[in-house]
Amino acid sequence: MLAHFDWLHGVAGLFVGTLVGITGVGGGSLMTPILVLLFGVSPQTAVGTDLLFAALTKTAGTATHGWRATIEWKVVRRLATGSVPAAILTLLVLSQVGKFGKDSSDLIKVFLGWMLILTSIATLLQKQLAVFAKRQERRDEDEQRWPTVILGAVIGIAVTVSSVGAGAIGVTALLMLYPALRVSRIVGSDIAHAVPLTMVAGFGHWLIGGVDFMLLGNLLIGSIPGVIIGSLLSSRAPDKLLRPALAAVLLFSGFKLLS
């Protein structure tokens, strides 16, 4: 029975990895609801495991973007200035929730549901919002320092609680703040920022007992070839069909978690 479930987890990793490679949407918005809704993993364990899963996979992504010089390190530093302290404070709050007779899994489940709904909207409207931002008056990037730090703090809280927010939502917000930057540099910066954030948040969840390392290993075995396959298929994938379909799945998952 255990081997059977290990095999299914590997298939889930393959599926999510392939979709991430094709669409670029963060694995947290796909993997965490799958673990909770299909495999019955507790929300806290699903989030903690997915955070370390993201840290490991996005380290490879950061190396690739760094090699291609598609990372705006100034933006990464600004985001991390807000997100890492916010993640640590959020972990402290989550670690104390149980002491007040409340289950942190319930809080995580509700927060995850709303984040999936927001991610579905961001996934659907990302390109339209990027076009709108580029049409606006050009702004000095130095003026975006504190808005970017605040965005980092918001993402830090969202990712630590739900493992969702650093993908579609983060990229969409950065496209609005930095319309002059190429999309490849926005995506590369978002991925690079996700590494320290998910590492800190994932390590914190491990300390409070929210990581399943056996599950993590099975997911990685499937996701690594999945990301490679998805990346090879990305140029041929029908984006006009995939994004609405993905948004619909995320929206359904969000409402299912809230019901």
Rank of each mutant, 00 (worst) to 15 (best):
M1W: 02
M1D: 07
W7D: 01
G10E: 04
G13Q: 04
V16F: 05
G21W: 03
G21D: 11
T23D: 04
G24E: 01
G24F: 00
V25P: 06
G28F: 07
M31Y: 02
P33M: 07
L37F: 08
G40A: 10
P43S: 05
V47N: 00
V47T: 00
G48E: 04
D50H: 02
D50Y: 03
F53E: 03
A55I: 02
T57N: 11
K58S: 06
K58L: 08
A60W: 10
T62G: 08
T64F: 08
T64P: 02
H65V: 10
W67M: 12
A69F: 02
I71S: 03
E72D: 15
E72W: 05
K74H: 09
V75M: 15
V75P: 05
A86H: 01
L89P: 02
L94H: 06
Q96A: 15
G98F: 12
K99N: 13
F100Y: 12
D103C: 12
L107Q: 04
K109D: 01
V110Y: 11
W114P: 06
T119G: 03
S120Q: 07
I121L: 15
A122N: 06
L124P: 08
K127E: 11
L129G: 04
L129A: 10
V131G: 02
R135M: 03
R135E: 10
E137C: 01
D140H: 11
D140A: 12
Q144N: 13
T148V: 03
I150W: 05
A153D: 03
V154E: 00
I157V: 15
S163F: 03
G165N: 08
G165W: 08
V171T: 15
Y178T: 11
Y178L: 10
V183S: 09
S184V: 14
S184Q: 13
S184L: 12
G188I: 13
D190C: 13
V195T: 05
G204R: 08
W206S: 14
W206K: 13
G209W: 03
V211K: 04
D212V: 12
G217Q: 07
G217V: 09
L219I: 03
P225N: 08
V227M: 14
G230N: 09
S234G: 07
S234K: 13
R236M: 06
L241A: 14
A245W: 09
A248D: 07
L251S: 10
K256I: 00
